[in-house]
Amino acid sequence: MKKNWPLWEIFIRSKNGLSHKHVGSLHASDAQMAIENARDVYTRRSEGVSIWVVESKHITASSPDQTGSLFDPADDKVYRHPTFYHLPDEVKHI
């Protein structure tokens, strides 16, 4: 059977202080080549200062079937948000 170069997911930090962000994917024969390909493909216009590559098959994703059970329960936990708490206007810097 013919084998192809594996697929890699590419994450790029656009500048120090920001987190790495998923920008897309590409094929490469190994991790080192994936980084170099990512540099050539995804930072041609100075878009990055740091690159992460992860082989796509190593990413485990949550299932959309579980979207309801995973994420909806957070919707009514309003007490996690600062606007839940009422303070008089005179109180500053809080």
């Binding site: 192809n4 170069w5 024969s29 190994d30 080549m33």
Partner: peptide
């Protein structure tokens, strides 16, 4: 080229 790169990896 593609095959050799994979073989090397």
């Amino acid at each position: 080229v593609r095959e050799a790169a994979l073989a090397y990896a």
